[in-house]
Design a protein around this nucleic acid. Structure first.
Lengths: 253, 253
DNA sequence: TTACACCTTGACGTAACGTAAGGCTCAAGG
DNA sequence: CCTTGAGCCTTACGTTACGTCAAGGTGTAA
């Protein structure tokens, strides 16, 4: 049986280029070349290629393989032992590398958290600033400098985890508020629950809690367009009013 | 502080070529180039090189390093994780490779032993043939076909280990013989010990042992030039005679 | 005959430098 | 001032085992 380059290549699972390369470096010459210059391989070459591929699978370089298959008394065992030693060294190096990469990943992880923390610190400052700009005057007038300052201080002292907790509580309130509005009744269980959550949320910000202040804040949500818009956007039209009604009911109990 | 290529290279433990290459690919450009075309690096480049080398140590390619250090918000952790995954895959492949090489080594080892065995078989045949050619007639005349045939058969049935054992005993005899000769007395303890060893050696070859045959063989060592020469070569002049005397004395006890 | 698969050689690209070759520059010693 | 040796420069090839065009010839079935 005779084979052209492609035939042999497919049989052996290598590319035609590989066979041409092996011919080029003298590792595997075709049995003959036909009149058109086509490489023709026969069974002998098939076998030889099998040998070559076997050794190649072991990671030996073509030069070594060349010697192994062309020199009958070439010390195969010794060659393999050398190769084995090299592979072990390579693995040892790889192990170290992996270890180092892992260490670096760990420290990089630490740095990412650090960076996020830094960003968060900046974020908090910016938020306070914005709050002051937006609501500063009114709020300070209503609740007094002390309460506002303490609130700001509280925010400054907050860790990212704390903040995220408060934030998620805030989100919860908005969701539950939307649901509670479906009852249409600010005194329904759902609505009263939302009011209770809002109290909890508030205590995160305020040092001291009073029913009056709570009801006052709720009223502000209705009076101040910016707050009204915020609640209406998040929980639906009339949310600010509904929330105020629920809180007024809750605080008068 | 400013550095030329060599200075920086030495500081950082890389070659000048490496720095030129890094310049070439735009990884690390010198701070400036002086009027003669010399690359001049300053502290900033030293630091950058440190970063590059750090990542290089982790096995990252220069292209990736380029991105890591030039793009500030490039995801370092993600990059390292990818790299880590690649390294783990590489190690898994290497492990398989090593396993395969070990398997091949084992089977190759088996084949070497086989080969040695085959060679040994051939060697034994050749030895018997040679013995027959050299000493066949005389020995067969003296000890009879049976003894010789049985001796040959014994050799044929010998394993390599057996043979090596007999051979080393033979070597021992030669060494001890040389020492015993220093006493100048074939009846000395040393000489008698050599005779005893020779008896042991002989029983490896002969099915049955007799004092007469032993003494007869000893005499042949003297009578036959080839044996005489052998012993004289190995253990010193007069060794064959000395051995005969010792054996004669030993067998007459 | 024509289309299409298959063949050829030649040559560039790969990753990260090592290693000349050929020529210019700098600092120190005579 | 000149020389000398060390150091700098650019250019370019070599390394490993092919992958991937590109340009052009060949084989075969419809």
């Amino acid at each position: 049986m005779e084979y052209t380059v492609q035939k042999l290549a497919q049989m052996a699972g290598v590319s035609g280029r590989t066979l041409r390369y092996y011919d080029e470096i003298g590792l595997l010459k075709p049995a003959r070349v036909n009149s058109s210059g086509y490489r023709i391989y026969s069974q002998k070459e098939v076998n030889k290629l099998q040998h070559i591929l076997f050794y190649r699978e072991l990671g030996l370089n073509l030069d070594t393989i060349q010697k192994l298959i062309s020199t009958p008394d070439f010390d195969r065992y010794e060659t393999l032992k050398d190769h084995h030693t090299k592979l072990l060294r390579k693995r040892a190096k790889l192990d170290k590398l992996i270890e180092n990469v892992e260490k670096t990943m760990d420290s990089e992880k630490g740095r990412i958290v650090m960076t996020d923390k830094e960003k968060f610190e900046g974020f908090k400052d910016k938020m306070i600033e914005e709050n002051e700009k937006k609501y500063g005057k009114e709020i300070r007038k209503k609740y007094g400098d002390d309460t506002v300052n303490r609130s700001n201080q509280k925010l400054k002292g907050m860790s990212q985890e704390d903040y995220q907790l408060v934030e998620s509580l805030g989100q919860d309130i908005l969701t539950k508020l939307e649901k509670a509005m479906e009852t249409g009744d600010p005194e329904s269980n759902e609505a009263q629950e939302v009011a209770a959550m809002h109290k909890q949320w508030l205590t995160y910000w305020w040092e001291s809690y009073s029913k009056e202040a709570h009801a006052g804040l709720a009223q502000m949500y209705v009076d101040d367009d910016r707050f009204t818009k915020y609640y209406d956007d998040k929980s639906g039209k009339g949310a600010a009013e509904f929330l105020r009604d629920a809180i007024v009911s809750y605080t008068s109990k």
